[in-house]
């Protein structure tokens, strides 16, 4: 009995995990299907585009510019050991576009957007606003979830693209001002080095991370328990899940795009 207890606990944990995976998958499928079926709520979509996309620009820009700058310094310092300082533009470009741009933007979106979606929807759940929506013949999946998911799908790839550019600009600024690179050569090297595949993978990662971030916020919000504690748990859980899933998805997508 006591010998089997750890096994039992493990089994329960696995079952809970599988059940959650199942519920999340069903939720995701429903959310996506509602994007394509009327009625649509353009006003909700517009305000989601604004809060998820436009208002995330400052944090995305600041994250990218500092990371790009730091990256240039490190590559220069590291490259100097092999007399390879000249690779700064190429490695900054590839590092930002392939990995750091999408991952950092994804994580920032998880911190900023996932948490606020989860807290907002969970509060609505706790104060019976979700029930009220339903009684007013409005499907919360369509009114609350679909616009947010669609808005994230549209805007996060754009944010990643902007983050990539600003990150490269950060590296450029540092390289030109402190490391004595020639501006024209730097830009030339960057542009010539990047391939279509790099850019496509960056934007595709953006779309995937946006989807994950919005879905986790909505899922944890809709599943929230009762009371302020329920809202707190939903918010925490959504950000944890979004961050971990974004990093895991990044690993998988890097494999898909760059293993030959």
């Amino acid at each position: 009995m006591t010998l089997l207890a750890p096994l039992g606990a493990l089994g329960r944990a696995v079952l809970t995990f599988m059940a959650t995976v199942g519920r999340v998958s069903i939720f995701a499928a429903r959310a996506l299907s509602h994007i394509f079926r009327p009625p649509w709520y353009p006003r909700e979509l517009f305000s989601s585009l604004l809060t998820i996309g436009w208002l995330s620009l400052p944090v995305v820009g600041l994250t990218a510019i500092f990371t790009g700058g730091a990256l240039a310094l490190q590559i220069y310092a590291g490259g100097a050991r092999f007399n390879a300082e000249a690779v700064v533009p190429q490695i900054v470009a590839i590092g930002m576009v392939r990995e750091l741009g999408p991952v950092l933007v994804g994580l920032m979106i998880a911190a900023r957007v996932t948490s606020s979606i989860a807290a907002e929807i969970a509060t609505m759940k706790v104060t019976e606003q979700i029930d009220a929506l339903t009684t007013l013949s409005t499907n919360p999946m369509k009114y609350l979830v679909a616009p947010r998911v669609l808005a994230a799908l549209i805007t996060v790839p754009l944010l990643v693209g902007i983050g990539d550019i600003i990150g490269i600009a950060g590296g450029f600024g540092v390289a030109v001002h402190s490391l004595d690179f020639n501006p024209a050569t730097y830009l030339m090297n960057t542009v010539n080095f990047l391939e279509t595949r790099d850019v496509v993978s960056s934007l595709a990662k953006g779309a995937a991370f946006g989807l994950i971030a919005a879905l986790m916020g909505c899922f944890y919000g809709m599943e929230s328990g009762r009371g302020a504690q329920g809202v707190g748990r939903a918010t925490k859980g959504s950000v944890e899940a979004a961050a971990v899933l974004i990093l895991a998805a990044n690993f998988v997508l890097t494999g898909v795009f760059f293993s030959i």
């Binding site: 609505m124 104060t127 019976e128 606003q129 029930d131 009220a132 929506l133």
Partner: peptide, 8 residues
Amino acid sequence: FQGAALFD
């Protein structure tokens, strides 16, 4: 609803 449940 008991708590009014207005959309804030």
